[in-house]
Design a protein around this nucleic acid. Structure first.
Length: 562
RNA sequence: UGGCCUAUGGUGUAAUUGGCAACACUACUGAUUUUGGUUCAGUCAUUCUAGGUUCGAGUCCUAGUAGGCCAACCA
């Protein structure tokens, strides 16, 4: 149990403190509260891992609760997408709940607040109400309707509910303090009239509660012990508590809200508006484009749930501003994929290699390991023949000592095959190398046990047999933005930093066994990176997405020399 | 002329509550390697600043500085 030795984050400290102060462990309960108005992204993943992780740690239930109080924005399509994403991440919620389940209870409580003189119907326009709100440094002014009688308020509020008024004609407001330094306490709106069908309650209601009035009360109804949200809700906490004071009974658990800093990822954006702009502007193919930081995008790219959970775990949770380097996410993808992804050979940018002393028409099947990290993964056979493809960049006519690959007169090992020596570069009219002719040492076959097969040569190349290889479309993805914090520049729009080379599509040659690869299958293309079969893929037209490259020490050496 | 929050290597998070600043990533060295992958070993900090309390301060006190959040009938 390495888990036990892990240091606690500040939320866990709070819970431990509550526990040692006598809070019964059995009453611990958490919730993940998305609004079903968009797709989940990597930032949500952190919150999901936090809440569900706490559930696992304390053996406590975690509800999935949709905060669906705004019928203008929410759709059941998003509910389904969110559920799929949470499940894919590997978490199970105790109960699926909706804030809309509580509309009647919320309404009844609202009438109670009116009777207690804690809420009133305001009949001003939203502009008037906004104008009276004041500013952070100036107190607001009270509404002329603030002192309506209980019976008048009740009658009006019931009228609102019964649909007697047009949208915007009245709102229900909490009666708190128009001079509070906390602007959220300046008589916040609790209900607005919205003549709109709701994805669950349809037209049952034409008044809808707002977030502040709904959230804490929903936590209370569900008896959530610790309601965790992001830092921008910190100023809402006094209101959360004020509303709770209005309804809580002494024998029931009173939820507490605590806030943590949302996680920011470098080289991307996560705001819904900006993500939407990328989609509608055609910069990506959709919400699940593999370059998107959405859960669905990461999934399509080939990222594993384990990688995301480990990532969330290592970045932890705290209260300060942060930008987590996307390199850490890459690390976790590689770390997990290294253990589970079968190795295969694929050539993305081919050049033909002809072994002049290998008999024409001959072929043989070479045994190769599926995953050196996993002995259980076994072996498979791959075809070898006179004409092969290797990567263009693995051959140079001449190169210095640091180039461990194929150069004229130099030797190299073909992975799981033979040692070859480059003899001649065949060029076209323009002087471009179109073929490399080489000779092989027939006694050097990998695993044959001969002295020649044991010889150490510095370089090992991946390859495919030209006549056996199958074609595939391979989509090479890079980060979407060239700047680490594209949306944190004061005078520059984040779109200025979009990476024009974030997608390159190539036609590659794969070892024939990949013919049967199915969407979402993941592989390591040896020496290149991890790749995942795209949902667009068909047996007749294979499509792979590059999830992440392998670490590339050679690229760094080259870069330094340039 | 406001309120609230936050400051620890390049990045993210720790620090047994006042006792040798730790872990991971990145970067850089080197070893191993039939993937320039993996693995292994190593290197990288005046804890925002200035004072103060103390035998001892990342932690406590005072004063600054910097950054973030708050004026939807959004969540």
């Amino acid at each position: 149990m390495s888990e036990a030795s892990r240091s606690l984050n500040f939320i866990e400290h709070i819970i431990e403190d509550d526990l040692s102060a006598g809070f019964p462990k059995k009453q611990l309960r958490f919730r993940f509260p998305p609004e079903p108005n968009g797709y989940l992204h990597i930032g949500h993943a952190s919150s999901i891992c936090l809440n569900f992780g706490l559930g696992l740690r304390y053996d406590a239930p975690v509800n999935l609760r949709f905060d669906d109080t705004n019928p203008a924005k929410e759709e059941s399509e998003y509910v389904e997408a969110i559920k799929r994403d949470v499940e894919w991440l590997g978490f199970q919620w105790a109960e699926e709940r909706y804030a809309s389940d509580y509309f009647q209870q919320l309404y009844d409580w609202a009438e109670q607040l009116i009777r207690d003189g804690k809420a009133y119907v305001d009949s001003q326009t939203s502009e008037e109400i906004a104008a009276q709100k004041g500013t952070p440094t100036e107190a607001g002014t009270e509404s002329p309707f603030r002192n309506r009688s209980v019976s008048e308020n009740l009658e009006l509020f019931r009228g609102m509910k019964e649909g007697k008024f047009a949208q915007g004609e009245h709102v229900l407001r909490a009666r708190i303090d128009m001079a509070s330094p906390n602007m959220l306490l300046r008589d916040p709106v609790m209900y607005r009239i919205l003549h709109r069908a709701h994805h669950r309650t349809n037209t049952d209601w034409c008044i809808y509660p707002l977030y502040d009035w709904t959230h804490g009360e929903s936590d209370y109804i569900e008896q959530v012990s610790h309601s965790l949200c992001t830092l921008e809700f910190k100023p809402h906490r006094p209101l959360y508590d004020w509303f709770l004071d209005c309804v809580t009974e002494p024998d029931k658990l009173r939820p507490k809200q605590r806030e943590f800093a949302r996680r920011n990822l470098s080289h991307t954006v996560v705001s819904k508006r900006k993500l939407l702009e990328l989609v509608t502007g055609g910069h990506v193919s959709g919400w699940d484009d593999p370059r998107m930081p959405t859960i669905s995008g990461l999934r399509r790219r080939g990222c594993t749930p384990e990688a995301i959970r480990n990532f969330a775990d290592t970045i932890g949770i705290a209260k300060r501003e942060n930008v987590v380097d996307v390199a850490l996410l890459d690390f976790h993808m590689r770390e997990h994929l290294n253990k589970v992804a079968p190795r295969v050979m694929a050539v993305l940018d081919p050049i033909k290699l002809v072994i002049t002393n290998y008999p024409e028409g001959q072929e043989e099947w070479l045994e190769t390991e599926n995953n050196p990290e996993d002995p259980e993964a076994g072996t498979r056979e791959i075809p070898f023949s006179r004409e092969l493809y290797i990567e263009q960049e693995d051959f140079r006519e001449e190169a210095n000592r640091k180039f461990f690959r194929l150069k004229l007169g130099g030797e190299v090992r073909l992975k799981s095959g033979y040692i070859i020596k480059a003899e001649r570069a065949v060029k076209d009219d323009k002087g471009r190398v179109v073929e490399v002719h080489c000779t092989y040492d027939p006694k050097s076959r990998s695993g044959s046990g001969t002295e020649e097969s044991m010889r150490k040569v510095k370089g090992t190349l991946h390859w495919v047999s030209a006549s056996h290889a199958i074609p595939a479309e391979v989509r090479l993805y890079d980060r979407l933005f060239t700047d680490p914090t594209p949306d944190q520049h004061k005078d520059r729009d984040f779109m200025e930093f979009i990476n024009p080379d974030s997608l390159e599509v190539v036609q590659a040659w794969l070892e024939p066994g990949l013919e049967t690869a199915q969407p979402s299958d993941r592989f390591q293309f040896q020496r290149l990176g991890y790749f995942c079969v795209d949902p667009d893929s068909t047996p007749a037209n294979l499509v792979f997405n590059r999830t992440v490259t392998l670490r590339d020490t050679w690229a760094k050496i080259e870069q330094k020399e340039a």
